[in-house]
Amino acid sequence: MITHYGYIDGSGEYYIVVDSDKCSGCGKCVQICPQKAVLLETEFIDLEDKTVAAIAEEHRKKIRYTCGTCKPEQNQTPCVLACDSKAIKCIWNPK
């Protein structure tokens, strides 16, 4: 399951995208996030629980603020770079 966390507004669109099928649950992204916005969460897939990376509930709705500091770095946010399984992507298309 691919989850998009982020927003679209007049300034453009910004998403942190987590692919839980690729995620190994290693937690490196959790360690590196300067805002402590990433955590490991239980996801219910095919009647099983799997531990995967996710944006913390409290930050989901304010990505524009939480992730503001990482945004200018050409889609190579720390969480993206930390992921060995390429499960995290950052989409930033300013208008």
Binding site: M1, I2, T3, H4, Y5, G6, Y7, D9, Y15, I45, D46, R60, K61, K62, I63, R64
Partner: peptide, 11 residues
Amino acid sequence: GRVTSFLMNDK
């Protein structure tokens, strides 16, 4: 009915 991709709006 299994989710393949999903997006939630900003609050």
